[in-house]
């Protein structure tokens, strides 16, 4: 099982890499989109600002390469900002186009009705909606580690697979077919996060 981590100049992919290696994956740090060709799975991490991250993806030719994964049926997991970039657009510091893989828009927490401290940082419990392969074997209400000031507002309700309660419910995970996203950081969510990554590796495996 080869997993490519999209390496487009964002910080801190060491712990994602380590977690996937520990789970038995052959991990490729993809510095160029050509490196996605041989991957069975693709992970899109992300830290920082939406506009700048999308600009880096565009400049590196990643946008088309990532979109091609959908018709090819290869699973993709976006983490944190990586999940947000699956959306159509974001309002972070102006309006920016996303990858458009899961219908929706990324908005600041206060624009979503949140009146608590921003960013939402820390361990928060997650409620799953319907069957989500990412949360197999993980009890309802398990805590995951979040760090974010913006959240995904989905266009199609059935793409929400999990939410977390701050003062308003926030989207914690999305899925459309084999495109997955987690707002939380599985690589920083200890054993439960490790299980999410394992579930991603196991998804669709015969």
């Amino acid at each position: 099982m080869t997993v490519a981590i999209v390496s487009y100049g964002v910080n801190n992919i060491g712990s994602v890499r380590r977690a996937l290696v520990d789970l038995g994956a052959d991990v490729v740090l993809a510095e160029h989109h050509d490196a996605l060709a041989g991957a069975d799975r693709v992970v899109l991490p992300g830290v920082g600002a939406f506009g700048e991250a999308m600009a880096r993806l565009r400049a590196g030719g990643w946008v088309d390469a990532l979109r091609r994964l959908v018709p090819q049926g290869r699973p993709l997991l976006g983490i944190c900002l990586g999940m947000q970039m699956l959306a159509d657009s974001s309002d972070e510091n102006g309006t920016h186009d996303g990858l458009g893989l899961i219908a929706g828009r990324v908005r600041r927490l206060d624009a979503l009705g949140c009146s608590l401290r921003i960013p939402h940082v820390g361990w928060n419990d997650v409620e799953y909606h319907g069957a989500s392969p990412l949360f197999a074997k993980i009890p309802q209400g398990t805590d995951f580690y979040f760090v974010h000031s913006y959240a995904f507002e989905v266009g199609l309700p059935d793409t929400v697979r999990a939410t977390t309660a701050y003062d308003v419910p926030l989207v914690a995970s999305v899925q459309r077919e084999h495109v997955f996203g987690t707002q939380f950081h599985p690589e920083k969510s200890s054993r439960a996060g490790r299980q999410v990554l394992k579930n991603f590796l196991d998804y669709g495996r015969c």
Binding site: L23, G141, D143, R191, A192, Q195
Partner: peptide, 9 residues
Amino acid sequence: HQFAGAVSQ
């Protein structure tokens, strides 16, 4: 809550 998952670290 501690998650006593199947995945070892």
